[in-house]
Nucleic acid binder design. Sequence first.
DNA 1: GCAAAGTTGGAATGTCAATTCCAACTTGGG
DNA 2: CCCAAGTTGGAATTGACATTCCAACTTTGC
Lengths: 211, 211
Amino acid sequence: MSASVKAEEPKEQRLTKGGRKTRERIIEAAAELMFHRGAGGTSIPDIQAAAGVSASQIYHYFGDKQGLVLAVIDHQTDTRLDQQRPLLDNLDSIEALREWCDRAGSRQDARGCEGGCEIGSLASELADGDQSARTRLVSAFDRWEGPIRSGLARMQERGELSERADTAALATALLAAVQGGMLLSQVRRSSTAYRQAVSAVIDHIESHLVR
Amino acid sequence: MSASVKAEEPKEQRLTKGGRKTRERIIEAAAELMFHRGAGGTSIPDIQAAAGVSASQIYHYFGDKQGLVLAVIDHQTDTRLDQQRPLLDNLDSIEALREWCDRAGSRQDARGCEGGCEIGSLASELADGDQSARTRLVSAFDRWEGPIRSGLARMQERGELSERADTAALATALLAAVQGGMLLSQVRRSSTAYRQAVSAVIDHIESHLVR
DNA sequence: GCAAAGTTGGAATGTCAATTCCAACTTGGG
DNA sequence: CCCAAGTTGGAATTGACATTCCAACTTTGC
């Protein structure tokens, strides 16, 4: 009866134990390569070699390259957020905010400031050209910003943060500082810009402290 | 005597009037395409069609694609900075800062928040893979940040800004807010994030006002 | 233990991109 | 006006890449 106009979703196929493992291996290899060279700069043969799989396996599990890119976005989002926990879920003090940001700065230093934010880089590359990718990136940033906002909201509920503070806007500003700071640091090969950017926003949040 | 190890620079060739014009046409077409699809996503044939030139002309004037990309970086830097003048050179009051930022927000709205920052997008794509591109991007951001810092420094010299304010760091933070805000806005297709990001940093700067 | 479903290898296909070549045409200076 | 240098068109080359195919192999549910 209903003409299914959009039946593009690769109807969830049943995966064998090994299949799940292969799928994961592909995603991880692709994520790593795409982090360094971008999605467009990473070819299927590249991924084949890195993951040790054949082309048919990639197409079997992801349909096409775009499908793999979408999976990589989700994977990076999950991975990055998990890496930041439990800090990310307890951003309800100035000190917690500073430590959380500092951690990302150290991570950046540790890799010599090569590469920016795993999510931000994909966002910059894919936001305009790939509608479905953009949608997933919106949700990636929402999932990231949410915990920040929640932490600030808790501070406000507790009466630590002025009622006049717009916690949602502050959370957005902090995430933007992270992204912009990462970009400048990546280009300059120094985490200084990142640290100054987040520090300015956290100082600003601090100015809303009651007392 | 001195063995010139690096003689890679395409020794400035003399350009005829028409040649200069063709060169410019190529750069502009390339810049436009690369803004929308990225440098990697823009092919030479694409540029040929957009600029109405043949392949040999592109290679004649730029050597190879990377040469063209470098020229595009410089062109976008010059163009963007010129577009922001004279505002950019007079960022020595809170109001001036706000208006300057607001202008970029309106520009973003005007294009439906498609595309991010002309320089930032190239930076994100090229910072890791192309050493010479990264170098030019460093100078692009320096040329951008400089006037911001100068404006803040003037405010400080005049005694309007607290002596404890680190004007260099604040300038970096503001530029980072612009970049990060642009990215979030591009992904969310709404300039709100950009406006909140820059607003937070300018509010912070404002908190350093004397009086 | 068997058939259906899931996995895998590897070659084949078709497209398109970057770059090179070279011959022809135009312009500037002396 | 004439030559050297600058410009241009268009075809040819080479290589890579996304994707498809199909036959063979393995796992799972009954």
